[in-house]
Amino acid sequence: MTSVRTSVAAAIASLLLILIVLELIRGRRLKERYALLWLVTGVVLFVLSAWRDGLNTIAGWLGVSTYPPAILFAIATLFIIIVLLHYSTVLSQLDDQNTLLAQRVALLEERLRAQEEKTDAD
């Protein structure tokens, strides 16, 4: 069985996560687009912390009879992996875009310099 203390601590921790994410959005330090996964993580963890029977049931399904809170760890880990994978794809896209921008700027600079030389020569 999950002890009440564990449940309360886990519920507070997940609530904190939700509040921090919301405050980051409000302060424009986090975009909604990248916050949704964190919010889902926070909500799922909060629900499983507060809903003790649910946690025990899921633990039973997964064959974890000795220590149900381990399921909280497992689910938290799963979500963190999803968030990280998501960020890796975002990072890859930013990488491509950054290269493209650098190339555009370099080509524009070259074109501008050629233009200036032509103007000077006239």
Partner: peptide, 16 residues
Amino acid sequence: YYVFKVTLALFMAMVR
């Protein structure tokens, strides 16, 4: 996804 995202953004825009 957009319905959730934009709804969240609406409320955030209100408290910003």
